[in-house]
Amino acid sequence: MYNLFHTASVSRVARTLIAVSVATFATSASAAEELTVYTYDSFISEWGPGPALEKNFEAACQCDLKFVALEDGVSILNRLRIEGKNAKADVVLGLDTGLIEETRKEGLVQPHSVAFDALTPVLKWSDKDFVPFDYGYFSFIYDSQKIKQPAQSLQELVNSSASVIYQDPRTSTPGQGMMMWMKSAYGDQAENAWKQLAQHTVTVTKGWWEAYSMFLEGDADYVLSYSTSPAYHQVAEDKSQYKAALFSEGHVMQVEVAAIAANSEKKELANRFLEFLISQEAQEVIPVTNWMLPVRKGVKLPSAFDTLIQPKPIELTPEYIAANRKTWIKEWRSAVAQ
């Protein structure tokens, strides 16, 4: 979900500042109808899809797209809950499959009118509230110059002594994905597996970016990221040593989604924006800025994408996740806090 940065030299905070100032300048541009979008910060950083999408959409709609940057997917949901009726969002962008049901149940979104004919059949998408805009598979990334024989299953990784960095499931969607992965691989035994993993976990970070930059500095053998991450290194850095490990249990799929906020009165404009998100134009931008797979059929991708692993998806319904997320989080934190 997060785009990778050229030299990883700009911190989240600095990026946020840039993003915020970009957003602020954008507001003052015109008095046209405003569409406020809550998203996560890296989406609207200057390397992310935000700026290009904003330019293209504004040109078409004669409106003013205003991004509000939050830390990441889980934070967007928390923000909506915290603000309740005061929420300023018209569109929320950057939630994922694991948060869909909870968001819906709390009445934070309203139905859209977007048609899904052009979407890839892989997603089997038909949700009436949420529109997918990219997807990927959670994967552990390793440096093939350092690790010659990568783990071939999640169990092998958990049982090994290889150093691992992953993200906090309470703040970060990859961390949440890891939780689902562990649950589907271990079921009732997950608590013990977490404890075992904790033995060789370097740290659990708040967000994806911290984890990934620590990994690039050589602090761990594996980092939790996406199957698409190696494409970034190939395209932007011309480096091919970073690879995603293919696990025999299959990989949890993350679909990133957008929706119209429950109390938005700009339903029509919001729908246009959601339609734009899955348009050919936007779908060509997103893979090479957010480094995820396009949701639309027939989008041309750089050849680096052909070299990526093709994981077997683990199917988890949003209802199942929503019913268990809180319990899983409790189980995780109890296990790792020991």
Binding site: S11, R12, V13, A14, E217
Partner: peptide
């Protein structure tokens, strides 16, 4: 301080 925290926690 929050800016410094942001930098320090992202190893900048």
């Amino acid at each position: 301080p929050w800016l410094i925290y942001g930098y320090a926690s992202t190893y900048r």
